[in-house]
């Protein structure tokens, strides 16, 4: 009897210790984020203003703002997403719904996407430069930058969307089929809405990577910091701007901090927006006639 009690005591100590350890580790991870955010705010908050967000940079970015750079970043992102999303989601639908898991075709596509996911971004940059800028004659432009990013985003978008579709219970497919619904209708009306949260999560990861990308854009969208007139103009992305200010411009630390703060806040906003979007989509599907 006594032995049982001491065992329990020992186990409860161990449980508490492990619990404490997990709390500490979580705290540590959160602390890293808070520290980065704090550092950015400390270094860049004073420089932040409405003028900084809207004005063009002067003196290589030491003064002035990041207006054109924000516009270029958003345009590059838009081009990348408009190109990559339809491709990625249709590929995911094909892999998850139409091709048997064991088929050679599916395996080959999955393998090539895995390889693509492992390619360093600088290699994408070189490929984009050679193919989009030179071979297709798009030059250093927002368009070639966006298309290069689209190639980079494909693996992450496909794999998250495929996982999302596969996670939808098989019973939905069976009952839809038993009601005489076609596969296409099942996919569009049931499976994609059910997978919407995962699709949004994948989209987020993609946007995060795209907004933060530097190396792939160096050789494709270039680093002209003027306001772009069209998609065929060169445009400097925000991450590239930060890199340039921090590495190549003496005295550019404060604007670099401020730009990084803008980038992080932008990512946070996109995050919250996408989550709300997924939630709203689900609700609309449930509520609508």
């Amino acid at each position: 009897m006594l032995e049982v009690i001491t065992m329990d005591k020992w186990q409860s100590y161990r449980d508490r210790f492990i619990q404490l350890l997990i709390y500490c580790l979580v705290l540590l991870v959160s602390a890293v984020f808070v520290w980065i955010l704090f550092d950015l705010i400390k270094g860049g908050w004073s420089h932040l203003s409405w003028e900084f967000l809207t004005q063009s940079p002067f003196d290589a970015g030491r003064s002035g703002g990041i207006g054109p750079i924000l516009i270029s970043t958003l345009l590059i992102l838009l081009v990348a997403l408009i190109t990559a999303l339809p491709l990625a989601w249709t590929t995911a639908a094909l892999l998850a719904e139409y091709v048997p898991v064991t088929s050679q075709f599916g395996k080959t596509i999955r393998f090539s996407l895995q390889v693509l996911a492992g390619v360093p971004s600088i290699v994408f940059g070189l490929f984009g430069n050679a193919f989009f800028s030179i071979y297709l004659g798009l030059g250093f432009s927002i368009l070639s930058g966006g298309l290069t990013l689209a190639c980079m985003l494909l693996p992450i978008l496909v794999s998250t969307a495929e996982a999302g579709l596969r996670a939808v219970p098989q019973s939905y497919r069976l009952s839809a089929a038993a009601l005489g619904m076609s596969r296409t209708a099942t996919l569009i009306q049931l499976l994609l809405p059910a997978a919407a949260p995962t699709l949004a999560a994948g989209l987020l990861l993609g946007i995060g990577r795209a907004v933060a990308e530097t190396a792939a854009l160096l050789f494709t969208s270039g680093y002209v910091d003027r306001m772009p007139d069209s998609l065929l103009d060169s445009g400097r992305a925000l991450a590239l701007h930060i890199f340039d200010l921090a590495m190549n411009v003496p005295g550019g630390d404060t604007p670099a901090y401020a730009s990084a703060l803008v980038l992080v806040v932008l990512l946070l906003c996109i995050n919250i927006l996408a989550m709300k979007l997924a939630y709203g989509l689900q609700r609309r599907r449930i509520m609508s006639l």
């Binding site: 009952s175 009601l179 005489g180 009306q189 449930i286 509520m287």
Partner: peptide, 18 residues
Amino acid sequence: TPFPLSIRRNITLPLREH
């Protein structure tokens, strides 16, 4: 196995399909 939709749409969805 109801679909994750409204009660009404559970019935209208297959009807519309046909």
